[in-house]
């Protein structure tokens, strides 16, 4: 039995999201095994909780970080979504917004930050630099996309992205979280490290 889940985002019609094809593919993949009704209801409840409470880690390396601050500030106010509880300790954060260039010197630090986060954890690559190296992609000291070292859930392009695209990216992440399964599949994405 295939359970079709479609995440609803408040005051943002499904059709207005840009890449619904990718999204539907993702939904298909996640629900390939199906699940029973009670578990699905519980899943929905937990996903609702998780998707509405994505606490970001304060992590910024360059320009995009300033735009992230603008998103937190009065005009754009990320608090409306309940994401304003920025945590400084990776242990307590749910999502890492990689905003800014990641250099090869910073790469192990970023990887370690990601490893320190508690599951479930999400990664948003913000800005051209984090996605592909951006304007610095030819440099000898720049990582060409953070997806080379950590799994990325949502890409937010721009240099730097406007605050609106930040919010759009976060809503896309909410949609993704809303179709995840807590029961039935593994909750922990990352394998236990070998001693």
């Amino acid at each position: 039995m295939e359970v079709k889940k479609r995440a609803k985002i408040k005051s943002f019609p499904y059709e207005e999201f840009k890449d619904n094809e990718t999204y539907e593919k993702l939904v298909q993949e996640l629900n390939a095994n199906g699940a029973n009704v009670i578990v699905t209801q519980l899943d929905n409840l937990i996903d609702w909780g998780r998707s509405n409470s994505l606490w970001p880690l304060t992590f910024a390396t360059s320009c995009c970080g300033i735009e992230f601050m603008a998103v937190c500030a009065a005009r754009y106010d990320i608090a409306r979504f309940g994401f304003e509880v920025t945590r400084n300790s990776p242990r307590q954060a749910d999502v890492i917004l990689v905003s800014g260039t990641i250099t090869t010197k910073m790469a192990p630090v970023l990887k370690r930050l990601y490893d320190q986060m508690a599951d479930p954890k999400y990664v948003v690559a913000v800005g051209g630099c984090a996605i592909s190296g951006g304007p610095f992609t030819k440099s000898y000291h720049v990582l060409k996309g953070v997806d080379k070292i950590i799994p990325v859930d949502v890409y937010v392009p721009g240099c730097p992205p406007r605050p609106e695209s930040f919010l759009y990216g976060m809503m896309q992440l909410q949609r993704k979280v809303k179709v995840e399964q807590f029961f039935g599949t593994t909750n922990k994405k990352q394998k236990e490290p070998k001693e």
């Binding site: 409840l45 937990i46 609702w48 909780g49 998780r50 998707s51 509405n52 409470s53 309940g82 509880v85 242990r91 749910d94 320190q116 508690a118 599951d119 479930p120 807590f182 909750n187 922990k188």
Partner: peptide
């Protein structure tokens, strides 16, 4: 009910 969502999230979060 924002805080309820936070509580649900927190309850299902991994303890490292």
């Amino acid at each position: 009910i924002q805080v309820l969502a936070d509580v649900l999230k927190m309850l299902t979060k991994e303890i490292i």
